[in-house]
Design a protein around this nucleic acid. Structure first.
Lengths: 355, 355
DNA sequence: TATTATAGGTCAAAGGTCCA
DNA sequence: CTGGACCTTTGACCTATAAT
C-alpha cells in the first residue's frame, strides 16, 4: 500500500528493507529472526540491560533486544502462521521431503493402536474364559455350545473392546445406543473374519461349527432348562444362510488383515444414521469416522506394500455395505430382539464401566 | 436471483462476499484460491485432521480444509476452466509435471464414459418428457405430480440408463433381478444427489418438493381415479424421513460430482448378495464392481486433484452403506412392493430391448 | 451497444524451507 | 542459531466473455 519510490529501511536494524513482514517493514533477516523466535516458542535468554542498540552490525549480539524491537516496530506474533498452527491442535508437521513416510501406526494414541491393544486383551480374556491353550485343537461344536460361547463372549467384548471406544461429549443414552447397535454387526464381522477361507465357522472360543452338518447339531438340546441357550440359537439360526450369501463372500474376497478388521470394526461402531441418534452423536461419529478413514488410508499407504491403496480402501469400505445388508436381514427376522435381551443382561457392565 | 441488499459473507471464510464464484457465494480470495487449486491440478498436502476452522484469520493455514470447505459450500471443480473448455473442445489441462497422467475419462469404452453418455441421454429424454427448457424455473410440486413424474421417469431410466448397463453371459431372469433391485436405490441416490445442499427435494422433472410443507401437499388428491398416483405416493411417503436421516446427510457431506455419482450408480447396479442371485450373476457383478472401483480410483488419482484419493474413495464407498440402510428401511415398510408393480408395468420395455 | 456477473491472468507481497 | 538463497502461496487488481 505504501509503495514509495524512495529506498526504505528495516525498522529494526536499518538494513535495506525488503517489504512488510508480520506487520512491519523489515529486512528478510529480521523477518526470519522474528519468525523463528515466535515459532520456536522458547524463552529468549536476556543477557543485557535492555539498552542494546540494534543495527546491522550489532543485530546478532542481543536476541532479546532485537526481539523487543521487532514487537516495538509493529510485528505481530499472531502473523506467524506456524504460531497459529500450534494453537490449532490438529495441525500436523508438514513433511518437507517427499520420501517422508513415517508409518502412522506408530503414532501413539492412534485409534488403531488403542484397538489393537483392546483386541489383544479381548483375545487374552477369551483364552482364559474358554480355556484355550497354545496346544488345544479346535473342536467341532454345536448350537448349544455356541450359545454359551456367545453369552459369555458378549460380556468379554463389552468389557475389553467396547469400553475402550471413546465417545467424547456424548450422553450415556447415546453411548448405549452405539453399543447396542455395535454388537450384532461386530459378531457377524468378526465371525466372518475368523472363518475366512474356511467352510467352517469359527467361534470366539476357537471351536468351530461345521455348517454342512448344521441340522444334526441343532437338534441336540440336552438341557431344556437353559432358556438363554434356545434364545441365542434362535437368534443365530438365520445367520448361516444370510452370512454365506453376503458378508462371508465379501470377506473371503477382500482378505482383511487384523488391522483392517479393526478399522472396519471401528467404522461399524461409529455408525450414523441410526434411529434415535442425536445430532451431537452424529457429529461425533462423523469426526471419528473421518479420523478412522484417515488412519486406514495411512495404513494402506505406508504399512501395507499395496501399490493401489485407493482400490484397497474401496474394497474394504464395501464390506460395510455387506455388513449393513446382513444386519438388516437379521433385523427383518425380528429375532434380533433376543440379542438385545442378551445385551440387557450385561447392561450393568456398562453402568459400572462408564462412570 | 437472490440479490439481497443485506451484506453477504463468504461461505468459506466469512469475509465479505464478492459474488457467486464457481457455484458458491464467496470472497475473491477464496474464489482465486479454489481456481488456482483446481487449475494447478497439484495435490494439496493434507497436514491436519480435517477439523480446521476456516475463517478470515485462519484461511491461509490449512489449504486442504479450505479446499474441502469450498466443495462443501457448493463450489464445483467443473466450473473452473469451463469457459476455456467451451471455447476449445480439445482444451488440455495445463500439465504441471511432465509425467502428467492421461485422465482416464477419455479412455474409450470405459464404464464411466458409457454411463456419462447414457446419463446425458437420460437427462435429454427428461427434458423432452417434462418440457424442461433452459429458461424454465423450478416449481414447487406435490405428491400427485411426484407420482406422475416417477411413473414416467422409471420408463426413461430403464430405456436410457439401465439398458446400457451390460450384463455379459447372464440369463434374462438374472438381469431382471438386477434391474428390479436397481431402481429403488437409484431413485434414492439420484434424488439425494440432485438435492445436495438444498432443503428442497428435486424431482427428475426439475421441480421440487418442499419437505417442510409436505403435509399440505400430501392431502391434495384431486383425481381419485388415478390408483397409480396413490400407490407411488404411498411408496415414497416414508422416504422423506428416512432419507434425511441417512442418505441425504451422507451425500451433503461427501459432495459427489457427476462422475462419482455415476460410479456409485454402477456399483449399486452390479450388486451382489441379493436373494435368488445365481453364482454366475454374482461372479459377473464382482468382476464389474472390481472394474468400476478401478476406474473410480483412476478418476480420483488423475482427474480430481485430491491429494489423498484413498480417503476420497473410502468416503464415496461409504455412501453404499447409507444407500443399503435406506433401501432396507424402505423395504421394511413393505410398501416397496408397489414400486415393483410400477416396474412390472414397464417390464415389456425390457423384453423388447434385451433381445 | 452497454451493462453485469463471473471467469481467468498477472504480479508483488508474504510465508516457508533449506543449508552453509 | 543466523542469514540469505530460493521456492510456493496469496490476494489485489486487471482483463475477458457470455448473457442480457
Amino acid at each position: 500500500m505504501t509503495r514509495m519510490t524512495s529506498p526504505q529501511f528495516c525498522l529494526i536494524c536499518g538494513d535495506s528493507a525488503d517489504s512488510l513482514h508480520f506487520g512491519a517493514l523489515s529486512c528478510r533477516a529480521c523477518a526470519a529472526f522474528f519468525r523463528r523466535k515466535v515459532a520456536g516458542r522458547r524463552n529468549i535468554f536476556r543477557r543485557c540491560d535492555r539498552q542494546c542498540k540494534v543495527d546491522t552490525g550489532m543485530r546478532k549480539l542481543c536476541a532479546s533486544c532485537r526481539y523487543d524491537k521487532c514487537l516495538k516496530v509493529g510485528m505481530r506474533e499472531s502473523a506467524v502462521l506456524s504460531r497459529l498452527a500450534q494453537k490449532n491442535q490438529n495441525y500436523k508437521k508438514p513433511s518437507g521431503s517427499p520420501e517422508e513416510c513415517e508409518p502412522s501406526t506408530s503414532t501413539s494414541g492412534s485409534i488403531l493402536e488403542n484397538l489393537q491393544n483392546a483386541y489383544q486383551k479381548l483375545e487374552e480374556a477369551r483364552r482364559k474364559a474358554f480355556n484355550i491353550t497354545h496346544d488345544s485343537v479346535p473342536q467341532s461344536s454345536n448350537y448349544k455350545r455356541m450359545n454359551e460361547v456367545f453369552y459369555e463372549d458378549i460380556k468379554l467384548v463389552v468389557e475389553n473392546l467396547v469400553s475402550t471406544l471413546q465417545c467424547p461429549d456424548i450422553s450415556k443414552e447415546q453411548q448405549k445406543l452405539l453399543h447396542v447397535h455395535f454388537l450384532v454387526p461386530f459378531i457377524l464381522l468378526e465371525g466372518g473374519y475368523k472363518s475366512t477361507n474356511s467352510e467352517l465357522f469359527y467361534l470366539p472360543s476357537g471351536d468351530y461349527i461345521d455348517e454342512t452338518r448344521i441340522a444334526e447339531y441343532y437338534q441336540n438340546p440336552d438341557d431344556l432348562n437353559d432358556k438363554s441357550g434356545e434364545a441365542a440359537a434362535e437368534v443365530f439360526r438365520p445367520y448361516w444362510k444370510l452370512n454365506r450369501q453376503t458378508l462371508k463372500m465379501h470377506l473371503d474376497d477382500v482378505q482383511l488383515d487384523l488391522p483392517e478388521l479393526l478399522f472396519v470394526t471401528a467404522l461399524v461402531f461409529y455408525d450414523y444414521g441410526l434411529q434415535d441418534q442425536t445430532d451431537d452423536c452424529i457429529e461425533m461419529c462423523k469426526r471419528m469416522r473421518s479420523q478412522i478413514l484417515e488412519e486406514l488410508t495411512d495404513y494402506e499407504k505406508n504399512v501395507r506394500i499395496n501399490d493401489d491403496h485407493s482400490y484397497r480402501v474401496g474394497q474394504i469400505i464395501m464390506v460395510l455395505q455387506a455388513i449393513q445388508r446382513t444386519v438388516n436381514m437379521v433385523h427383518e427376522t425380528r429375532e434380533i430382539s433376543l440379542v438385545y435381551n442378551l445385551y440387557e443382561r450385561h447392561s450393568s457392565i456398562f453402568e459400572t464401566i462408564k462412570d
